[in-house]
């Protein structure tokens, strides 16, 4: 009986340890795998030219990633500019102004919004955002467009990022001790002044981290953006032009990548680049969060 217990203890201990080690090795495998796959491209062109050149002619062996990086950045910036104020205000309302019943209603709403698959957001984008831009918004600026634009990508992405960032900001606000705000109130500050000068200032690192992680998420989002952004290789400043973010490049070209030399390697380099950027942002801001939690 005792022997059986000890053996089962040892066996399951090994099982647990192996599983955990396997999971922790996943990132290393992904980095190594994608890096190895993209080495042929490194031998062909140097890294700096790869990311700064905007010549994209796979048939001639020219792989310039700048249009895609710029497209990703542009979409992300628009999404962030739209989503960040909404998140911050909603988080303030839910944690400071609203009654707790409101929070109970909103938590499932946030959950469901966060859980909807990105293609569903894409369908919504195609049905609503794209026609809205081509029929109402763009004509207001005297621009003629199909609606499949960087701006459409930004709007869809903003809606997708809101639940993600909002959740984190609410969590940050909940860690601020009630006593701090009460002290500020008792010193004669108004409710809003206490929020502005105490709650927000105190949760500054957390808010920045939430924003950073939201940006990372927006940067890597694929399907929804790809469905509405137009996907043409160009670097334009006008948000009512089509763009071509990095994830869309990878997802769009998997079919033909094996027929053109170095093309598969280029797409894997795209994935590698995306992974490194997002992993770095994640590690930096999560480190921020962990530091603030320890204190």
């Amino acid at each position: 009986m005792l022997l059986k217990r000890i053996i089962s203890d040892k066996l399951s201990g090994v099982w647990m340890l192996i599983s955990l080690t396997a999971i922790l090795l996943i990132p290393l495998f992904i980095i190594a795998g994608l890096y190895l796959k993209s080495t042929p491209l490194f031998n062909h062109q140097d890294f700096l030219r790869l990311i700064s050149s905007s010549e994209w002619q796979p048939h001639k062996g020219n792989f310039g990633f700048w249009p895609f990086i710029a497209g990703s950045l542009y979409v992300t910036i628009i999404a962030f500019a739209l989503a960040a104020p909404v998140c911050l205000l909603a988080a303030i309302y839910l944690t400071q102004f609203a009654r707790s019943a409101m929070m109970r209603i909103m938590l499932p709403v946030i959950d469901i919004l966060a859980g909807l698959p990105s293609v569903i957001y894409g369908v919504w984008g195609i049905l609503i955002v794209v026609p809205f831009i081509s029929k109402i918004l763009a004509p207001a600026f005297n621009i003629n467009t199909s609606g499949y634009t960087i701006f459409a990508g930004g709007v869809v992405l903003a809606v997708m990022c809101i639940p993600y960032m909002l959740n984190m900001i609410i969590e940050v606000f909940n860690t601020i001790p009630m006593g701090l705000k009460e002290a500020s109130l008792s010193l004669g500050a108004t409710f809003w002044e206490s929020i502005k000068h105490v709650v927000i200032r105190k949760s500054y690192p957390g808010i920045i981290s939430a924003f950073g992680l939201g940006i990372a998420k927006a940067f890597g989002e694929t399907m929804a953006v790809m469905m509405v952004v137009g996907n043409s290789v160009q670097v334009k400043f006008n948000p009512f032009e089509a763009g071509y973010p990095l994830p869309a490049l990878i997802a769009n070209n998997y079919g033909e990548m094996l027929s053109i030399p170095l093309y598969d390697s280029a797409l894997m380099f795209g994935a590698f680049l995306l992974l490194i950027i997002i992993l770095l942002i994640n590690l930096i801001f999560r480190y921020f969060i962990y530091r603030t939690r320890v204190h």
Binding site: L24, F29, L34, G220, T222, M268, I278, L279, R286
Partner: peptide, 19 residues
């Protein structure tokens, strides 16, 4: 470990797809 797992959670699915 939690830190690494959280970072793993943040990797976009297209990267998993490519891998």
């Amino acid at each position: 470990i939690r830190y690494i797992l959280d970072a793993l959670w943040g990797i976009p699915s297209i990267v998993y797809g490519a891998f």
